[in-house]
Design a binder for these strands. Structure first.
Length: 463
RNA sequence: GCCGGGGUGGCCGAGCGGCCUAAGGCGACGGGCUUGAGACCCGUUGUCCCCCCUGGGGACGCGCGGGUUCGAAUCCCGCCCCCGGCGCCA
């Protein structure tokens, strides 16, 4: 019998489950509630099973009854049981849907390795690259490195790089968020020419990199049904992030993770075919309802962007190792892109409900004087698999368990573009194109090759 | 979107109101036989609940959800998906 780790812990050691939930800074009282409902659920089920059994016995005897009178008597007896069952089943259905709802509202467990606390407890565990630090940001740069005991080499610059938002609209003239705002709303954008080429070059680079490592390339559905979406994310994320198609049971994906996870919805995988490593490409649609006015300028936080995503279905015993693998893949790509980053181990209070552990990769943004999130890599263990009903069968003994799922950004296009606009910016506004991207631009006549040249807004593109 | 056909266990495929709750085959797993493998023989093969829990009992399960009946894979209604034809379309 396959068991979901959270349900197993609820039944075996509810106090321990409470500690996990408390680590997420959530109210552990839900544990008592769901435990009581689960007990009631089991009790009712036992009672109903017994009544149904008696009913089945009678029902079977009707066909074999010797006389018409006997049949009539048995029918009445069966009806009497049905009346009792009706009452019990009504209770059960109530309890059952309550139980389902409560179980689905439980977050995943928290890995022992995760720092406990709110987001301020998240800890950088590794720095890479030589960030360019403007003199005015030196203090805050030190604050973001030395405070955690890291001595990070940097290049001090005396000119302040232009922020990505002004770069794209004013210096390069290759983006228009004002017009997009007028016709679609804030957090939408038009990108033009070289930045569009750059977007596609980034995607191709990530696809090339990961398929070379054996990941299977997938172009997934961009919309999913409610039941499937609810299997992948928690309700809070649903409200804050997900767009619904009017009049249809369809929701726009916020990341390819959602439809990649759903690839084996209601299926069983044999242990000898795992791990299954996928690389998906898709647009991502996000409401950003909880974001308020954060990052309103530019294209850092937008309703729509392209992303290449890593996704793995794994054996339970392999998921920790594979979690390291996907964050390492991301690191490798950002190293090759030459973007200085740090890896942050996310604190328990800031974990999403699906994950037991999460790493973010944050790139140094010279114009903001901050490290900003580019990549997020999560180990979801059996949380999504339980909800999507994806099991693993161990050949040895044909034992069924839930598979583990893992996901990580490879490259999110618009965010990575913001990082390139700030990190590869020359004092005159020229943006150097990272070397690894150039081969993906080479075949196209009108694509930029080595540089993106400044040309004020309204100026004709290219020379 | 319209008309017609169809969705049965991991897979193929019978069954079309009760001969007790899915025949038969394949696969997989366990065991027997064997020096080993194959062939062969026996058993097992979904979900859930209960118990005196190396085992035993029961409920549910035939695309999904309802309904009719003492009894539904079998009859009725709604939805989803697949195949064929027509229409529309990048």
């Amino acid at each position: 019998m396959a068991t979901w780790s959270v349900l197993a812990l609820l039944r075996e050691n509810p106090e321990e489950l409470k500690r996990h939930i408390a680590k997420r800074l959530m109210d552990p009282a839900i544990v008592d509630e769901v435990l009581a409902v689960d007990i009631e659920w089991r009790r009712l089920q036992t009672e109903i099973n017994e009544l149904r059994h008696r009913h089945n016995v009678i029902t079977r005897s009707i066909a074999r009854a010797s006389s018409e009178e006997e049949r009539a008597r048995l029918r009445e007896e069966a009806r009497e049981l049905l009346r009792k069952l009706e009452v019990l089943e009504a209770r059960f259905n109530e309890v059952d849907s309550r139980r389902t709802q409560l179980l689905l509202s439980l977050p995943n467990l928290v890995d022992d390795d995760v720092p406990v606390g709110d987001e301020s407890a998240s800890v950088p565990i590794e720095f890479w690259g030589k960030p360019r630090v403007w003199v005015g940001y030196l203090d805050q740069f030190r604050e973001q490195t030395e405070r955690y005991g890291f001595k990070v080499e940097y290049e001090l610059i005396d000119w302040k790089p232009v922020g990505h938002a002004d770069m794209l609209e004013e210096i390069l003239g290759l983006g228009d968020t004002r017009k997009a705002g007028e016709v679609a709303g804030s957090r939408f954008y038009y990108l033009f020419e070289d930045l569009v080429w750059l977007d596609f070059a980034l995607l191709l680079y990530a696809i090339d990199k990961l398929t070379a490592k054996g990941y299977k390339l997938v172009l997934p559905p961009y919309m999913l049904r409610y039941n499937v979406m609810a299997g992948v994310i928690d309700l809070a994320a649903f409200k804050d992030a997900i767009y619904k198609i009017e009049g249809e049971d369809l929701y726009l994906i916020a990341t390819a993770e959602h439809s990649l996870a759903a690839l084996y919805y209601n299926e069983e995988l044999y242990d000898d075919e795992l791990p299954i490593k996928l690389v998906g490409v898709s647009p991502c649609f996000r409401k950003e309802a909880g974001a308020g006015s954060r990052d309103l300028k530019g294209i850092f936080r937008v309703h729509q962007f392209h992303k290449v995503e890593q996704f793995i279905f794994s054996k339970p015993e392999d998921s920790r190792r594979l979690h390291e693998e996907i964050i390492n893949n991301a690191k490798e790509m950002f190293q090759e892109l030459g973007l200085p980053y740090r890896v942050v181990k996310i604190a328990s209070g800031d974990l999403g409900a699906p994950a037991v552990k999460k790493y973010d990769l944050e790139v140094w943004m010279p114009a903001q004087g901050k490290y900003r999130e580019m990549v997020s890599a999560s180990n979801c263990t059996d949380w999504q698999a339980y909800r999507l009903n994806i099991k693993m069968i161990r050949r040895k003994g044909m034992i069924r368990e839930y598979v583990h799922t893992l996901n990580s950004t490879a490259i999110a296009s618009t965010r990575t573009i913001t990082a390139i606009l700030e990190n590869y910016q020359e004092p005159d506004g020229t943006v150097i194109i990272p070397k690894v991207l150039r081969k993906y631009l080479e075949p196209f006549e009108r694509a930029p090759k080595d540089y993106i040249k400044p040309r004020r807004k309204g100026e004709e593109a290219r020379t």
